[in-house]
Design a protein around this nucleic acid. Structure first.
Lengths: 232, 232
DNA sequence: TGACCCCAAAGGTATGACTTATTCAAGCCA
DNA sequence: TGGCTTGAATAAGTCATACCTTTGGGGTCA
């Protein structure tokens, strides 16, 4: 997944530095300076800058240099930007944003999936619901996480909407981040697991409204656990 | 907005060619060939390719070349990818995807906005609702579109969620595409305009549930007009 | 048949020369 | 004084070329 080559390394260094605020908005990076700092050639610097520019993290102008853009300009849907922000100081804000996005998207995706899911989808979803139940009871958080990610990714894929499907990674990152940061109880709440079973059943029964309702319960519950006060 | 420079021109040429399927999945582009075809230097080709690679439209490998990726790999949230697809053969699929995304996001955004909107937001939203009513009645579709885009963008911004806010352009593109392609009745449906007024009122009254309900009415209605049969 | 090796092909990197746009300031005119 | 023109400095943009590195594929040999 990681971009290879020197420009990839540069990108992996500059990107997080910008999204974390270490290089603040308005900073000016000059090519020559970057060449010297990283000991690479113009070619490499230019390619990395071009990619950052496509993400709207920076903007280069002649005679001025490459300016770090204000955060409102950033392409916050770019997978790399999301990952960098989740790994850095912005983690909290990013998790809240994604939480709201989940609230919006996942219930609708579940509703659509109920109308489109194949028999295979249904089987896999049911199996995952069982796994979730088992691993929640045994307290195996790692396995629970793995199945939880698979469950949500499957629903998003089964929705038949490519944009929803592409949010699977981001949703997975949220779930993973929650577990990594010990924001999960040692045994996942039973009500949440029950809701997952409900989603699976509703999808298999092609009951879109029920699937949507159950999924809405899951995501709103998740956000409340994360930030009880401020649901933005 | 458009990226300047030769690499920008290359990008603006290759991007649409790929998203439209003119250059099909699996095609291999060699740098040398692109240099010749566009009469530009290695530098320029490489920078353009690097950006396309960041969008996951292509992947380059040594000894092989730059391969066009399958559409499932594309970063479908990238603003440029969205624009290119809307402008090309994929227009229909892209509009349906975005329609579903609107159904998911806009009601939630309206609900959040009700809890966060400032007095200024409220004033502007109410003013836009009035404009919508007037221009709908007079049949001035161009002005109606302009205010409609402003209305939805404002709600998304007022939601306080940066990811929602960034969808404003995409939503605007959907609305614009609808008008451009004569998919609108000459006089926008009165029920839709009434729902816009309801959203404005609910947001001003800080009634999140009502705002969400009214907005849901708008977006589901919009999608049904667009594709009565298949709401994916 | 299969394992191994070698080479050519294509991208990756480095570098120097040159071009072009843009800012900033000095100078000029009103 | 104030605004306008002009010119020089600067940093990005482009080009051409040379060389490095990886890797797929074909050929060889056991």
């Amino acid at each position: 997944m990681e971009i290879q080559g020197l420009h990839g390394r540069l990108l992996a260094d500059l990107g997080p530095a910008i999204t974390s605020g270490e290089i603040p908005e308005g900073s000016v990076l000059r090519s020559e300076e970057l060449e010297a700092r990283y000991g690479v050639s113009r070619t490499v610097v230019r390619e990395a800058v071009r990619v950052l520019e496509a993400m709207r993290l920076v903007a280069s102008r002649r005679r001025v240099g490459t300016t770090v853009q204000p955060r409102e300009a950033w392409d916050v849907f770019d997978p790399l930007v999301i990952r960098w922000r989740l790994a850095g100081a912005d983690r909290g804000a990013q998790l809240r944003s994604l939480g709201a996005l989940r609230i919006a998207v996942e219930p609708v995706a579940a509703g659509l999936a109920a109308g489109l899911a194949t028999a295979d989808h249904c089987r896999e979803l049911s199996a995952l619901a069982v796994e979730l139940t088992v691993t929640a009871r045994s307290g195996d958080l790692r396995a629970f996480l793995r199945h939880d990610m698979a469950f949500h990714a499957l629903v998003l894929r089964a929705s038949g909407n490519e944009m929803f499907a592409h949010l699977a990674d981001a949703v997975g990152a949220v779930l993973a981040g929650r577990t990594e940061h010990e924001l999960m109880p040692h045994h996942p709440a039973e009500y949440a697991v029950a809701l997952h079973r409900e989603v699976a059943e509703a999808v298999c029964a092609q009951d879109g409204a029920a699937a949507e309702r159950a999924m809405r319960g899951i995501v709103t519950g998740a956000l409340e656990e994360l930030a009880p006060s401020d649901p933005v």
